[in-house]
Design a protein around this nucleic acid. Sequence first.
RNA 1: GUGAUUGUAGCUCAGUUGGUUAGAGCGCUAGAUUGUGGAUCUAGAGGUCGUCGGUUCGAGACCGAUCUUUCACCCCA
Length: 458
Amino acid sequence: MAQKPSIPKGTRDFSPIEMVRRNYIFDTIREVYRIYGFQPIETPAMENLSTLMGKYGDEGDKLLFKVLNSGDFLENIGFDELKKGNSLKLTNRISEKGLRYDLTVPFARFVVQHFGELTFPFKRYQIQPVWRADRPQKGRYREFYQCDADVIGSDSLLNEVDLVQIIDDVFKRLNVRVLIKLNNRKILAGIAEVIGESDRIVDITVAIDKLDKIGIDAVNEELREKGVADAAIVALQPILNLSGSNEDKLNQLLTILATSEKGLKGIEEIQVIIRYLKAFDLSTPVELDLTLARGLNYYTGAIIEVKALDVQIGSICGGGRYDDLTGIFGLKEMSGVGISFGADRIYDVMTQLDVFPTDRIASTKVLFLNFGRDEGEFCLPLLQKVRMSGISAEIYPDIVKIKKQMSYADRKRIPFVVIAGETEIAAKNVKLKDMNSGAQFSVPLIELVPILLTKLEV
RNA sequence: GUGAUUGUAGCUCAGUUGGUUAGAGCGCUAGAUUGUGGAUCUAGAGGUCGUCGGUUCGAGACCGAUCUUUCACCCCA
């Protein structure tokens, strides 16, 4: 055999059964987004590097896939420059496009570029793959889908409430038990303020975000390494240890953050959201989690994250409010809030929980056996009638042994086989075989479609 | 980016301290069954042992590089 072909690291092929399941997830999310009044858009796989660079932090810039300029990309590069090997500088000369890293930044670009054509508040959803040059590991791929919904041009906390409901709705439909965690960047900022380390808000949040995973001692150790003052770490402890109901936690926070205007604003926002949510009959628990930080690049208000309750995996959905995402593209005063479902991780979770509906697997419902040229021709009008009635059907294209054709039906889990050989044609009927029971019986030509419709109905 | 880890038939894996022609199960193909799938039996096909280089009389096994797999960290969906 010649050398086996392969695909790039961190990418995957999807078989028909995997596609059926993935589409089930996409269709569910798409349907919920539609019901909540979001409209679809798509953006190109490639964006200009100037759009992408600097939006995801230094780490993010490194993880961008860059696309080499077409044509002779070294045309204007001197040999001396190449020899110097300043790859950062060279990259700018030979590449001006990159694969999108997420859907939010391209969306911000979209809003600025199409500002005049849009009606605000603009609610859009977008389900497309994104690419990151990360090292693959569990639940992490270099090409994966995000399913984003954002509202831009509205400050109202009702949007946050909508998003929480969407999350609840989607996972209810998908039959996955989850926990929704809420937090607010203003509270995090308030905490940093009252412990006297406002400048270190990023370090502090990154560290306490790991509380679940590494424990309080390791968190304190990391804070110390990052240069947070011992007094501040001590002041932080009671906050990390807050417990009880959401109301209890908020009440205690009110005292702790009493001197921080920003912190109090954050508390108020969360209170409003939680109060609104009480009006709905949610099946998902919503928990205030002060250690929730998420990517800090653009979030400014609410932060939302969703964890599967029954499977150990990273977050499967997340989002938050960003007050000035479009500002970097020159459009100020545009507050937005959005969420993103990680379809690939949801797929992994649902696979582990075995909660995919089974009836979606068979695609073809009826197979016409092919006994020969004349018999095959005899089947064609019947085949068309079956298809016109909305039942997926096919005729075995090659004239091969019946055993092989039956085996094909069996392996594709086709529930019904139509047998039309010499004897049936002479008798002006066909035999219909039920592949599950193995029973088969004669059916007059006229009745084939009605009988199939009743049988498949069940 | 840091540190580990994996690679032998389509799939899951054996392969002894380096020694003749690299094996098994499942799957696949054909037949038993000249118009009937899922069971059984029989036979058969299929491998430059990830790739390149090195050590050796001799490498699937040892060494190096590289690609790939999986995992942790960083970060994140």
